[in-house]
Amino acid sequence: MPSTQTAPAQIDTTKASIARVYDAFLNGKDNYEIDREVVRRVRKVAPEASQMAWDNREFLIRVTRFIAAQGGIKQFLDLGSGLPTAENTHQVAQRIQPEARVVYVDNDPVVLAHGRALLEDNDQTHFVSADIFVPREVLDNEIVQRHLDFTEPIALFQLGTIHHYAGERSPADIMREYIDALPSGSYVAISHFLDPETPELSPLARRLEDVFLHSPMGTGVFRTRAEIESMFPGLELVAPGLVLCVNWWPDGPRIKPLDPVQNCIVGAVGRKP
């Protein structure tokens, strides 16, 4: 039988949750008024802000498909998995690699509750309650150790997550600890809010950051390209490198112009030599 951990019984609906805010941006149903308040505030700055969440989700789907098909990877560690949508990591990966094992990590009680349901009919998908910004808490977890073989390549996802970290350690240091634990041939995918550092777009990024930081969620840092690139220490970036999420191997030609906010979220995939 698949493994999980007991979800916390108490859900605090007076504080916005990262996972539930993303769910609200994606028009989901697993969110509360406090989460929707964050969305409303962000949309006052950028009415098309939901497109960032959609670009991040579609980036995840394309990256998973690439890593499973082209990379032949059969193990996935998805950090900050969020609430289930139509196409989750395990669904995409296991459609290509039926034997693929996926371990999701999150510590949001609503996500954990959904995680238990997710596990009921899939014995190759597992869920861990842990702080994704404390690598040893994740890497030493008994479920992670039991279901992922760290002598074989692993795909590690930090998608739409580490821009919500604002602790004392640098994001690059956190990622280095994860990367050091991965075997050769592993892949790491990161997506992150971007300050484009241009006169046209940087003010938008900073206004969005200000709203996120002063909203009931309290997190959401827009870092520079150099800061984000530093989160791939020792990795070889897969072409085209660090680009707008929407431009990372899109499924077809662009037939409409980008919304300004789409220039404020980037992603990349790196391979460990």
Rank of each mutant, 00 (worst) to 15 (best):
V138Q: 07
R223K: 09
V188K: 01
F222A: 07
N88R: 09
P171C: 05
A69K: 09
Q51D: 14
E197C: 08
S202T: 01
K29L: 13
I132C: 15
L194S: 02
L204I: 05
H90D: 09
V261C: 13
D30A: 13
D106H: 04
K15M: 11
P257L: 11
W248I: 00
E37G: 09
I179P: 00
I67H: 03
T6P: 12
A226L: 10
L258T: 11
V144H: 00
S230V: 06
F150H: 03
P216C: 06
R116H: 12
I179F: 00
D78M: 13
D149Q: 01
V110R: 02
W54S: 15
F133E: 05
D12Q: 10
Q91P: 11
R116G: 14
Y22P: 04
F193C: 12
A268F: 03
L208R: 05
E197G: 06
P203G: 11
I154K: 06
E209G: 07
N27V: 12
R271M: 15
A46C: 14
Q145K: 13
I179N: 03
Y104S: 10
V246M: 10
M217C: 12
Y22V: 02
P171G: 03
P240C: 11
D78Y: 07
A189S: 09
L237W: 02
N247V: 03
D140I: 06
N141Q: 05
A181C: 04
D140P: 01
I190H: 00
R43P: 08
F76A: 01
H147S: 07
C245M: 05
V138E: 04
S170Y: 06
E37H: 08
N141A: 03
D173R: 06
Q51W: 14
R225F: 09
V38N: 13
P153S: 09
S3R: 14
V246S: 11
A49K: 08
N88V: 00
N122Q: 09
Q70C: 12
Y178E: 10
D180R: 13
L204Q: 09
V134D: 08
